[in-house]
Design a protein around this nucleic acid. Structure first.
Lengths: 153, 153
DNA sequence: AATATCACTTGCATTTTGCAAGTGATATTG
DNA sequence: CAATATCACTTGCAAAATGCAAGTGATATT
């Protein structure tokens, strides 16, 4: 896998951790890919493409490359099928779980979503347990979805 | 203040709370504005413009309008000076504090930033207290910075 | 009245995103 | 073994977003 160092597309700005984080993944598509890896158990280009969010293949390719270059994900050709590339969050990537969890909770509380209320309430009340479950699934490479897709697929 | 209903710029995708949240503020500039309101005590167009991040005025205007339309911020002309517009996070906006805090912690731990280690460690170990302080400052309209700019200004 | 400040607005160039067809490598099928 | 299918991209181009810097109109100060 190509691991070209990421060129900053916009000039480095302040030294604030928020600003620097957002340079790595401060766009919608990157965070959605991270979500898919983290809670849906997705691994392949095809799965991300069919996630229900409508990402274009050139954007998906671009974002996967950038996330890999930032050390947030790794990519590995599958032994049994040389066409298939499996992506996985790194430790650095899985450490984004609290961010994703808070995004999910905020969205469910403040916007109209398809997420069941009981599920969100539970996640909100048991943050530590949810985060521990994310970690366990990551360690064990559990590919099953942790939460449903919320769009019937 | 104009409160035009926001036109979705990209098609609504899945019903997932993460996806829907990111449609509201899933871009770098919006989150930086929210940070400035939340932890730097900024209120005015001029302050955001001079935040050290290099935002263009047309982008700043666009984002402020979108955040207002999403109910995340409000805008109010200052009585003593009719030129001045003061922006403020709504309750909905301040509820993004956990997201911002986790972003800040992740960035400080995984990227090279100007944030002092002791400050970040403290924030990480006392999340509840930090969030309570954010709430207090919001309730009391405290305009003082909660954290430094990290770029010497 | 002249000047300064504020919050934008504007015109245009550059960059990014989106769409859909295409490509080459690998796997499966008949 | 050839034909077909699948996978992960790549490509060409149109549309949309961003960035730059000058400009504008309202309000405040000198």
């Amino acid at each position: 896998m190509s691991n070209v160092s990421r060129k900053p597309k916009s000039k480095r700005r302040s030294g604030c951790p928020v600003s620097i984080s957002l340079e790595k993944f401060g766009d919608r598509w990157s965070l959605l890919i991270i979500r898919d890896l983290m809670v849906r158990g997705y691994r392949t280009f095809k799965e991300f493409q069919e996630s229900g969010e409508g990402i274009a293949s050139n954007i998906l390719t671009d974002r996967l490359q950038n996330l890999e270059a930032s050390g947030i994900i790794t990519a590995e050709v599958e032994e049994a099928d040389g066409r298939r590339v499996n992506y996985r969050l790194t430790k650095k990537g899985i450490d984004l779980a609290p961010v994703l969890l808070e995004l999910l909770i905020w969205g469910a509380r403040h916007e109209e979503t398809s997420a069941p209320c009981a599920l969100i309430a539970q996640m909100e009340n048991c943050r530590e347990q949810v985060l521990a479950e994310v970690q366990r699934r990551w360690r064990e490479r559990d590919p099953t979805p942790m939460i449903p897709r919320f769009d019937g697929k």
